[in-house]
Amino acid sequence: MKRFLYYPRLYTLIVSQYIKARMQYRADFFISSIGILLESGAGFFSLWVIFHSISKLVGWSYNELIFIYAFSLLAITPSQLFFDNIWHLSSHIRQGTFIKYYFRPLNMMFYYMSEVFDIKGFTKLALGIAAFIYASFKLGITWTFPKFILLLTLLFSSSLIMISLMIMASSTCFWTGEASSVLIFVFKFGEYSKYPITIFNSFFKLLFTYIIPIGFVAFYPSKFFLRPTETNILAYLSPVAGILLFVLAYLVWKKGVNSWTGTGS
């Protein structure tokens, strides 16, 4: 039990130090927040423009797509807030500074990820929540307590999928020394999760459901709330997919950590 409480306490300590250090650059924080707001807002803008010309996209209405998009934003946010250090792994590996994480009596992944808490992610979170409330209000979705619990569970597993994919992508740098292009590759898939999987042909539908499971990030879980009668068995697999992927990602990371030979300095 003591051990169990030790990690959350440590996490708040490390993160509060990090936030203090970041607050040196207030202007940068402010401008970056605007940058992120524009970046995430661009997707809504695209939808808005497209729906000037059409009324439905493969049977999905404008507000339903806003709902799916908001869901995918909320699902991606945790990977940005808590796991942003993923993006710096390559440079730690190449410069050899990653060695320090081997010397602490802590879980290495925990210690490494706790060192960066990306405050800018809150902008994305706020935008996601606002869009989510807007869409569910427009669609007239009634929120009951069990539904809300379901939402939280699904969001948790969706973000776990995203986090796992990102961890696996960045772990490639233990062997190759450079993971930024793989990371961008996977990160983009997170962005594609905002489209209904039904726009694809059967080959890509299978690919995005089973091989690169981005369908589980936003589309399948959203169906629970948008079209409760149409949900297929796949949607229930979402939490299982999340946990399985995370275990897999952790194993890949572990293998990478054990096989890295350092830089010798």
Partner: peptide
Amino acid sequence: SIWGISIAKDTIVLL
């Protein structure tokens, strides 16, 4: 640091 400005620029240019 130009992280934020650059992200904003990319988005504005693309859109």
